[in-house]
Design a protein around this nucleic acid. Structure first.
Length: 272
DNA sequence: CTGTTAACCTGAGTGC
DNA sequence: TGCACTCAGGTTAACA
């Protein structure tokens, strides 16, 4: 699934194709996503013009000319593709937005952990967006912020930075990579990580996410940008998926364990 | 409140 | 070829 860099890559890939385009028809083939696509979704989206495509954390937000918005989340295996109308439909193609230029925006998601939801203009906020932590690439995010938020917390620092209420966008891959670059073991209780370490960690998170965006994301199995092209950040991974392999810095075999039900890799030599 | 676990769902990979 | 099992980029609901 897509973490922040993959979602941002999708946003950038989709945006030029949909800006100013009007949705002329909506086809829902399977509404059973993480939350069901509401029965009135087609009526909600039809005839609306797409004025902007933004991102909040791992959520894509399509702003419509009426002031309504569409929220799209890719879950673990979701994709958004821009295709010509009439493109063959394959398994897991759950939703099409037919555009007024003969193209369509297609949502494809084998595991259906993602979501496509309306966000009406008269709703001040949205339950999925309101309680999110700061954007890691914004000024609101810093080592001091992480330090303050983490005091007295016993949760592992990796789980802490993967918590979307703390900071958005760092999933399993980038949390592991950021902790490696900061030299902090993922198992450390968040409340025991020092101010200096959080300063390095905040820098690392920003750096890793920026680099990954530049590379077009990381490609494992299911991710591809809107144009179907893969990302290249996997060439820059130091710990994720490298259990048992020698550390690229010190040669020590990369260690792995489960933290909060997620595989977590780190280097015993480089990370304290 | 905090913290941990199971659950959602399908497909790919592995071992027998 | 088949079957049983594990694992996967996210997030929340239900627990103790």
């Amino acid at each position: 699934m897509p973490e922040l860099p993959e979602v941002e890559t999708v946003r950038r890939g989709v945006e030029p194709h949909v800006l100013g385009r009007r949705i002329i028809e909506v086809t829902v083939r399977d509404a059973r996503l993480r939350w069901p696509i509401p029965a009135d979704f087609a009526d909600f989206a039809r005839h609306q013009q797409i004025n902007a495509v933004s991102r909040r954390g791992k959520y894509l937000i399509f702003a419509l000319d009426s002031g309504d918005r569409l929220i799209v989340h890719l879950g673990m295996t979701g994709r958004v593709l821009v295709l010509d109308a009439g493109h063959p439909v394959i398994k897991h193609d759950h939703l099409d937005l037919l555009l007024d230029d003969g193209r369509l925006l297609r949502y494809h998601d084998p595991r259906r952990f993602g979501a496509v939801l309306p966000w009406p203009k008269d709703a001040p906020g949205h339950v999925l967006i309101d309680s999110l932590g700061p954007e890691p690439l914004s000024d609101a995010f810093s080592g001091a912020y992480l330090y303050e938020r983490s005091r007295h917390k016993k949760v592992a620092v990796k789980s802490f930075v993967m918590d979307g209420q703390v900071v958005v966008g760092a999933g399993n891959i980038y949390a592991a990579e950021s902790l490696f670059r900061a030299g902090v073991r993922p198992t450390r209780p968040a409340g025991r990580v020092t101010r200096a370490e959080y300063s390095r960690l905040a820098d690392s998170i920003r750096e890793v996410l920026r680099e990954a965006i530049t590379q077009g994301g990381t490609t494992l199995r299911d991710f591809a940008g809107a144009d179907g092209v893969s990302g290249y950040f996997q060439q820059d991974l130091y710990v994720y998926g490298r259990e048992g392999l020698p550390c690229r810095i010190c040669g020590t075999p990369i260690n792995s364990m489960r933290l909060g039900n997620r595989a977590s890799c780190w280097c015993p030599g480089c990370q304290r």
